[in-house]
Structure formats: structure tokens, C-alpha cells
């Protein structure tokens, strides 16, 4: 019985043995013609489809695989880790109980939480401020995994996190609770601390 190394050696020898080219292959011209045929078929087919699309024909058959990114977005899988958001209770206050588990587990140390006392003794605490620096985040998803309250998720399907400055990559608690509410030209409200009333008002004002 051949041992594993014998099999390996055999394979390596096989790979090293050069296949001798036939005469047709060695004169090279048929191969060039073949290659040109392949590329030209693609060219004329796609050109025809591009022109047909202009006049509204064959729209179902795509002429290119390109996704024109900012204008069109490719649907992503729901399990893809995208930008974070904080979950809300029904009245708009954050579901987060300020347990600091995510801040502790975060390998990039990019979560900054200031907890405050919650009037409901069964809840105990809430996040007065919750800041996340996407410029440091490595998108590992540990914060989502560790959260006991399912208060932070990475399912906004947003990946357009490019910004003109480091501040532009900073998510304050308002932006985390209401993703997309801040214009990209506005500076973030870093470390802003909110009362429970403020959260309710934010939800009502939309």
C-alpha cells in the first residue's frame, strides 16, 4: 500500500512533467485566433446588448456585471455585519442597560458608555451616553454577541461609512438609536448625555 508521502511524490512528479505541445499548439496562431474569438464574442454580444438597452430591448439580459455602486446597491446577506445600531424600547428609550459588557469585550476599545440610574428598579441602569468610533472598530461583532439585552445589533445594511474626517466616523447615541439621522456634513455630538425624557422626545420628533 502506497504511503501518503509516496502519493505526494507521485503528484509532484506528475505536476513537473511538462505536457508536450502539439504542432498546432506550437505555431501559436490558432490559439491566438481562439482567444480573439472568445473576447470578440463577448465584445459584440455586450455591445449589442448595450445598444438594445438604450432603446429598451432585452432589459432582462444584463450587458455587464458591474454594479454602479453609489447609485445602485447590491443586496447583502442579512447576516452580514454592517453598521451598528442601538435597539429601542417602545417609548424610544434605549434597550441598553449600561452593563458595560460590550465596552469591556471590544478588542478595539472603541465603545464609550456613561450609564445612568433608571427609575424602574427592575431595569436598574440605562445608557446616558453611548459613543462608538467606527474609525477604530474592526467589525468583529463581539459587542453584539456579548450583549445580554440584545440592545446592540449590526444589521443596518449600511456600509457607506466613508467620511471626510475622523469625526465623521464617530457615532453618537442619537445616530446609533436613529441610524441615518445625521447629515454627513454635521459634526457628531460626542459624549452627549441624555435623560430618559430626551429619548422619548427624540422618538416623537422622528
Amino acid at each position: 500500500m502506497a504511503t501518503l508521502s509516496d502519493q505526494l511524490l507521485h503528484r509532484i512528479r506528475e505536476a513537473h512533467r511538462r505536457r508536450t505541445l502539439s504542432w498546432w499548439e506550437r505555431i501559436y496562431l490558432p490559439a491566438i485566433a481562439q482567444g480573439l474569438w472568445v473576447t470578440s464574442v463577448h465584445f459584440w454580444r455586450n455591445l449589442f446588448l448595450h445598444l438594445a438597452h438604450r432603446v429598451g430591448l432585452f432589459r432582462r439580459i444584463p450587458a455587464a456585471v458591474t454594479v454602479q455602486y453609489p447609485d445602485e446597491q447590491r443586496p447583502t446577506a442579512p447576516r452580514l455585519r454592517t453598521r451598528h445600531r442601538l435597539m429601542q424600547r417602545e417609548d424610544g428609550t434605549p434597550r441598553c442597560v449600561g452593563c458595560m459588557l460590550c465596552e469591556t469585550v471590544c478588542p478595539a476599545k472603541c465603545i464609550y458608555i456613561v450609564p445612568g440610574e433608571h427609575p424602574d428598579p427592575s431595569v436598574e441602569k440605562y445608557a446616558r451616553s453611548f459613543d462608538l468610533d467606527l474609525g477604530k472598530c474592526v467589525y468583529c461583532g463581539y459587542c453584539v454577541e456579548v450583549c445580554p439585552e440584545d440592545a446592540i445589533r449590526m444589521d443596518t445594511q449600511r456600509h457607506d461609512i466613508a467620511a471626510f474626517s475622523r469625526d465623521g466616523m464617530w457615532l453618537d447615541i442619537i445616530e446609533l438609536l436613529h441610524p441615518g439621522s445625521r447629515k454627513h456634513t454635521d459634526p457628531p455630538k460626542k459624549f452627549i448625555q441624555l435623560e430618559l425624557e430626551d429619548f422619548r422626545r427624540l422618538k416623537q420628533s422622528g
Binding site: H42, A63, A64, Q68
Partner: peptide, 10 residues
């Protein structure tokens, strides 16, 4: 453009 159309790009 020709290279793009040949390679199924835009």
C-alpha cells in the same frame, strides 16, 4: 471602453 465591454464591465 472596448476593454470594458470585452470583460463584461461598463
Amino acid at each position: 471602453k472596448q476593454s470594458a465591454v470585452m470583460q463584461d464591465r461598463v
